[in-house]
């Protein structure tokens, strides 16, 4: 379980997180929605200790992330895959080495044959052909880079996956592929996921639960139906901006599984 309790974070004079409480239950896929620059990625980076809060507590698997020593934090991070907004692939290494670095079991990572099998397996999970392993990040398209980023994040078989804007900057076709991939990984690997996005459609498609971050706080939270029913003007304005759907359409989607 992931639990953030009353988390505060400021950069200089700018308060980014102003007492955030946020819980993710095992097996859930939670979408963290909010406009750009509201602090969604900052919140996500608190979960694996890339950023520490100025005040408040962050628990993952019952461990307070702030208090972990380097080795303990490394162990925890090996259980929390992180998919970066722009892939953050190591550009001096090819795809094989990038994914190999994601194999967090040091003994397994030394076994070349195991690594080759695992890299092909991970590429398959993100719908990429095995020969992608030989390519360098500069030779890949934006969508492929994101998928390699996901492959790297799952290579160590993590319990949690944190996605930072997985569909931003992609065309609708590639965005839809990534959305399907998030659902597929949830179903096939059973990982607990937190997806940071400002794409309302994407959030409604992939998440069991959605939280809306607004002015440093979680303004609204619930499943898609509950979120649509929230009467808060700021919430409605944000949802209405990108999402021209009604509850009836949402129910039709849930029933027939068609695209929004």
């Amino acid at each position: 379980m992931i639990e953030l309790k009353n988390v505060y974070k400021r950069f200089g004079e700018h308060v980014v997180l102003d007492g955030v409480d946020f819980v993710v239950q095992p097996g859930e896929t939670v979408a963290l929605l909010g406009p750009s620059g509201v602090g969604k990625s900052v919140l996500l980076k608190h979960i694996n200790g890339l950023i520490h809060p100025d005040a408040g507590e962050v628990f993952v698997e019952g461990m307070d992330v702030r208090l972990l020593k380097r080795r303990e934090l490394s162990r925890l991070r090996s259980q929390v895959g992180y998919v970066f907004q722009y892939g953050a692939l190591f550009d001096s290494e090819n795809v094989f080495e990038n994914i190999r670095l994601g194999i967090t079991d040091d003994e397994a990572a030394k076994d070349r044959a195991f690594c080759e099998r695992r890299v092909v397996e991970c590429l398959g999970l993100v719908n990429l052909p095995p020969d992608t392993a030989e390519k360098y990040p500069a030779e890949l398209s934006g969508g492929m880079r994101k998928r390699v980023g996901i492959a790297r994040a799952i290579a160590g078989q993590p319990m949690y996956l944190l996605y930072d804007e997985p569909t931003s900057g992609l065309d609708p076709v590639n965005a839809s592929i990534i959305d399907s991939l998030v659902e597929k990984l949830r179903d096939e690997l059973g990982v607990t996921s937190v997806v940071v996005t400002h794409d309302v459609r994407s959030a409604f498609q992939i998440a069991n639960r959605i939280a809306l971050l607004h002015e440093g706080k979680i303004r609204a939270e619930g499943n898609p139906e509950q979120l649509l029913a929230v009467e808060d003007e700021a919430v409605q304005r944000f949802l209405g901006r990108d999402l021209d759907i009604t509850l009836a359409q949402l129910k039709r989607y849930r029933t027939h599984g068609s695209s929004l």
Binding site: Y82, F84, A88
Partner: peptide, 17 residues
């Protein structure tokens, strides 16, 4: 360059020092 493209964060997030 690695810092601004989050490659260093990526390395840390993989449990590497």
């Amino acid at each position: 360059s690695m810092r601004v493209t989050e490659q260093i964060d990526a390395l840390e997030s993989l449990g590497r020092n």
